[in-house]
Design a protein around this nucleic acid. Structure first.
Lengths: 159, 159
DNA sequence: CTCATGTAATTAACATGTTAAATAGTTGCG
DNA sequence: CGCAACTATTTAACATGTTAATTACATGAG
């Protein structure tokens, strides 16, 4: 007998569990970020620029999982605080090029030890192997859902 | 040699992967909710009330992973649309009792088949066993981090 | 070259996340 | 009883999520 009904309750549903899981982890980092007056999203932008080098806004959105309108606002505050700089793209007047600035790099380096401590504590509680398992499963989940299998007979008929 | 450094890059970090994983799943449900003009959060409130019966605001916050200030606003719109009703709690004038109303129940029942189809598709792509694995890991993650192990020598010293 | 189309980014409008503070109601202790 | 401390909810203020519309620039067909 087929047994793939909807989650019996809200506590064992994928969206809710992913949300609560993320909250469980982020609650450990949030105090650190708050002490330095950076939001989660601002922090993600900084890290992406730090690790990848100058990027245009679209790529930052993609890599930091932030929507374009949010990024527009975030850019404004990060520029004001001199954590990043913006410039035009050579050859395409629409794009903006975002680069991390020295104060941004300095912030990341300043927080590095504390981040490490928090991450170690999370790992100690949950177990390093399980973290790897979880990361692998999440990656597989993302790939499985984002894959271009949209062409079911149903949806293809709508165009 | 100890090998538990910070995630090398933003793509393999727990918070980012959890965020992207959630987005991968929710992107499948969002269109359905949008068609019926309910937000994710409004939907979670309805489902919690449906599955558990009348609750006070705090319990709804807890079960739906919504912060109290957000819930206050959500209640307002759900009451306007007659999806829920609010009443006072006998014996404690501070609490509000939230109950799902017939139109709310009707909406949930109306969406049930579509939810089932979406969930089946997610399951088909990712695999039923892996969903269970993932849910188990997430639950373990949450428990491990929320547990009251806060009393490290470091933090105990701060009080 | 010119216009229709497409793309990158921004703006607008509203809902929610997030923290801090304010409001109301409860409870326990003297 | 009367007040201090606590608890549940709300309000406030600002940042972000989210979708739709708009602006500015780019590109290709004719």
């Amino acid at each position: 007998m087929e047994r793939s009904l909807l989650p019996k309750n809200t506590r064992r549903s994928l969206p809710m569990s992913l949300l609560r899981g993320r909250e469980a982890v982020m609650s450990k980092f949030r105090p650190m970020l708050a002490r330095h007056n950076v939001s989660e999203q601002q922090w993600r932008v900084l890290r992406v620029l730090q690790e990848t080098g100058p990027l245009d806004a679209s790529e930052v959105c993609e890599r930091a999982s932030i929507l374009a309108p949010s990024l527009t606002r975030i850019i404004k505050t990060l520029v004001e605080r001199q954590f990043i700089t913006v410039g035009k793209f050579k050859g395409d007047g629409r794009r903006v090029q975002l680069s991390i600035a020295p104060p941004g790099t300095a912030l990341i380096e300043e927080l590095q030890p504390e981040r490490q401590a928090i991450y170690d504590e999370i790992e100690r509680r949950f177990g390093p192997e399980r973290i790897e398992e979880l990361l692998d499963l999440l990656e597989a989940l993302i790939v499985s859902q984002n894959g271009m299998g949209e062409e079911t007979a149903l949806e293809a008929a709508e165009d």
